[in-house]
Design a protein around this nucleic acid. Structure first.
Lengths: 400, 400
DNA sequence: TAGACTTTGTGATATTTTTAGGAAGTCGTA
DNA sequence: TACGACTTCCTAAAAATATCACAAAGTCTA
């Protein structure tokens, strides 16, 4: 349990982590505390050797502000990105918020009743290998696909036992654990550390085996009443008589996901479409890579496939723009590593299906995170929750 | 300009207005101020004769709390609901938040360059007629269709001159003025005083000449980055080759608005469909009434028409449920006066087009406001903004 | 009919904010 | 280039607000 002063200090550390380097005034306004209090807390954090003064920033028309930053090597986050097929782990130093060490293990989420047990073991082994003291790791963040109930710690789609993932892993690893849906985490990554930094109303599209959506509304991650907001993949947008995994037909997913792209690529090649891609690898992840790389190299067929998917995603985005009027749309997730290739077809669909007054207000961009988006998001989740633990005062009464 | 104490007092008055009667503890937590401070302010408000003590509430397991309420006849709000064709005005006593006096005038918004001038005159006349002292009227709230920029006071869709409506009317009437889009106001009415009271994530559907949408997300009215969120009417949902007023085809509006219902009714009657509605009145508003009343009386054709529209609206709602995972959906606005007739067809479409796990989390209900929704919303807008004016301290420096 | 346990209300104390003014810059102008 | 007007940043002292600790006034159970 924390004292109130400790809570404020954690807020400062969180803002410094997301903001990299900040002045006293900036920190004061971000943690919504007065300057005198903020300055006192910053002084204490410097004494505790967690924060350092980095000299003076250039003047913005007045006295130059002292700049503060986190000290490197003091606090770490472990992040985990799970998949139907593969699990990746990384350690992130809070100071520069980038991955210092990563590992890919063949731990599939799908049809794997012992996944939690295995994950706990792998996590412990991974942390031991890094040789970082456990008390320097402020938390473990885990991203996974499916319907995730953040507060109950349950993933309804996978892990059918419905055990509380958070409680289970915290007991086994001895470090605070946070979980969330992969698309929400990617949105968090873009919002806190990526293309959507400082924006208020953002939609982040997760181009993957399905089409995910993470929402930042009024400057906070929006999850909906039971945490299932952003089920973009299954909105009824087409009349195509294609059966979706969800049991319905006409879902966006049936016309736009990377799985559909791969399927169409296989079919096309079989029918003899000329392409630099002679044959696609069996492994679905590698097949996806192959197509994206071919497209980047300019392969006509590959570009065509991505454009078609992009146009369909754009039709879905057009609906969202009407409803939410976002300032920014970020294309992110696995598929987004194809980069700017997406922009034209998506924008084209937006122009076709949106009222011009709305379309012109929403900027469109592609993530720079490539494969790392989910891992960075999982770390951001831990930092996001860093100041959200129960607070006690001196006497021990719980306040928050 | 206000002192900080005055600001807190306004917050208390606002909460009392929306909450009707509240205990000290409830007020304290709603205005997020400590009990000692809240109690002191309440005492001052009682002395100023704006608030009265209403005795003790039943105990909830401990000491019984003192109950506070606004005094009637102390503060009023003028609200205005504008339309393409007609303008309605009302006065509302903050104490019971219901309409005490209303007037319908033939002031059309459409193709009317002098509408602001006329509105100012009508407002002054209306206020004079009520014989309520102007300093007892805390504000004028105005709802209108179209793209409304709340902060700039501009309606981009009508009033092409793009004058600042708020500034203009404030100068002419001498009372603070607030404007907003009709669908946002209806959502505000339901959120603060109606079916969505106390809920956090709500979608309010405005069934009218178009299909509007007002969103309450994370417990606040959501407007989007430029204030145009909720353009539900023009999402591309159908492939029907029907030209919409927006210039595109396939918009929800082309299959679901009350205008379409009337159109189909006229066609059907012409083709000889049997119905208790022999012929529809020329006046579009009365035609709408006729159909709704016939449906309520059980007329098969009328029920069929509303069901069809309801099913199409439901398809649109299904998309929203996937994206936003709301806890409650309220059908409101002009068309909703048909009441529970809407529920079955809308729910049917939701069941058809939604993933069951999501559909089951979202409650569906119909507004109880009938024709009064927009007027009540316009009043709620004024009260909502009652504590949002610039604050000065004793010395006169602006704080907020 | 105690005794344990609620919630509400209120002075005394502790925390936090605001004020007011000094420190340290920029910018325009004579 | 020197000076005044105007920024922004920082901080001690005063004012505002929250927390604490406990009394008041209830409910519920054994």
């Amino acid at each position: 349990m924390l004292s109130k002063t400790d809570l404020y200090k954690q807020r400062i550390l969180k803002e410094l982590c997301f903001g990299n380097t900040l002045s006293g005034t900036e920190i004061s306004s971000r943690i919504e505390k007065s300057m005198p209090l903020t300055v006192r807390l910053l002084g204490e954090l410097v004494n505790e050797d967690l924060v350092e003064e980095k000299g003076y920033a250039p003047s913005s028309g007045g006295r130059r502000p002292q700049i503060y930053a986190l000290k490197p090597g003091k606090m770490y986050v472990v992040s985990v990105a799970m998949d139907q097929l593969v699990t990746r782990m990384a350690v992130i130093d809070m100071q520069h918020c980038d991955i210092i060490c990563t590992e890919k293990i063949g731990l599939p989420l799908l049809k794997n009743p012992d996944v939690l047990e295995a994950l706990a073991n792998q996590l412990n082994k991974f942390i031991d290998n890094t040789a970082i003291a456990r008390d320097k790791i402020i938390g473990v963040g885990i991203g996974m696909p499916g319907f995730v109930d953040v507060s109950k710690g349950i993933n309804y789609s996978f892990l059918e036992s419905q055990t509380n993932i958070v409680d289970f892993l915290e007991k086994r690893v001895g470090i605070p654990v946070h979980i969330d849906n992969d698309s929400s985490l990617i949105a968090l990554a873009e919002f806190r550390l990526g293309a959507a930094r400082g924006r208020n109303d953002v939609m982040v599209i997760n181009i993957n085996w399905g089409i995910g959506l993470g929402l930042v509304l009024n400057g906070v991650l929006f999850r909906g009443c039971t945490g299932f907001a952003g089920e973009f993949s299954h909105i009824p947008l087409f009349v195509n008589n294609k059966l979706c995994t969800c049991g319905k037909s006409g879902c966006l997913e049936t016309e736009a996901s990377m799985l559909v792209v791969i399927e169409k690529a296989v079919e096309g090649l079989k029918k003899g479409r000329v392409s630099t891609m002679e044959a696609l690898p069996e492994d679905i992840e590698e097949a996806c890579h192959t197509i994206i790389n071919a497209a980047i190299q300019g392969d006509t067929f590959a570009v065509e496939l991505l454009s078609e998917a992009g146009y369909n995603i754009g039709k879905g985005i057009a609906v969202l723009i009407h409803v939410l009027n976002p300032e920014l749309i970020v294309l992110s997730g696995r598929g987004a590593s194809a980069g700017k290739l997406w922009l034209a077809p998506v924008q084209q669909a937006i122009n076709n299906y949106c009222i011009p007054r709305l379309a012109s207000k929403s900027e469109l961009t592609v993530s720079a995170f490539h494969q790392r988006a989910e891992l960075i998001g999982a770390a951001a989740l831990v930092i996001e929750n860093f100041d959200k633990r129960p607070v006690k005062n001196k006497v021990g009464r719980v306040l928050v």
